[in-house]
Amino acid sequence: MTAIELNSVVNVPTQPVRFLIIDDDHVSVLAIKRALKKLKIINPVQVARDGREALEMLRGEFGDGHRLPPYLVTLDLNMPRMNGFEFLEEVRNDPALHRLVIFVLSTSDAPADVANAYDNNIAGYIVKDNLGDSFVKALDMIDCFTRVVEFPH
């Protein structure tokens, strides 16, 4: 098992990419964690039940003056208190968070939802129609993404 790390820049130590799952559905969270384990991805994983809780977690990461560590976010759209679209709007308007890499994992395949998500600069939109093999393949694609793409420092 290995952790996915950022490529190092001169004198900047690498840090493993952290996964933040934002989803209020316990079954979906377990499926994501199970898929990560099946893919032997051991990166730190945090879970938030809605957008508001996720913002508190993320803002807490750099509240002491440090930079936000690299995150890859999986975001559900339909959640209580603060839904996925509200979270995206808040993040994209926050100078400290606007570069977060976010993949939407949603049960909705409505064209308006897909378009709205991409209008908020997401990295990808994945429909949670099957939490089996296709779901593992989607997370494997995200794993490959983190290994190849440079994250902002």
Rank of each mutant, 00 (worst) to 15 (best):
L39T: 04
V12M: 14
Y118R: 03
V104C: 06
A35G: 02
E89I: 15
L72S: 08
N7R: 07
D113M: 14
I122S: 00
A115Y: 07
D23C: 11
N11V: 15
A123S: 09
D94C: 06
K137S: 11
N130F: 02
P111G: 12
A35Y: 00
Q15C: 14
I102S: 07
D76C: 14
D23S: 13
E90Q: 07
V127F: 04
F62K: 09
R99P: 08
S106P: 04
L88R: 03
A110N: 07
V9Y: 03
D64T: 13
L55N: 00
V29Q: 10
M57Y: 02
N11D: 15
I126R: 02
R49G: 08
V17K: 12
I22G: 02
S28A: 09
I142S: 09
A138M: 05
V10L: 13
N7M: 10
A112C: 04
V104T: 01
L139K: 04
N11T: 05
N43E: 03
H26N: 15
Y125W: 04
N130T: 09
L30K: 07
M141P: 01
M141C: 05
A31L: 07
I42R: 06
I22D: 00
Q46P: 06
A96V: 05
A96P: 03
P80Q: 08
Q15W: 02
M141Q: 11
K40T: 12
E86V: 12
A117K: 00
N78H: 05
H26T: 10
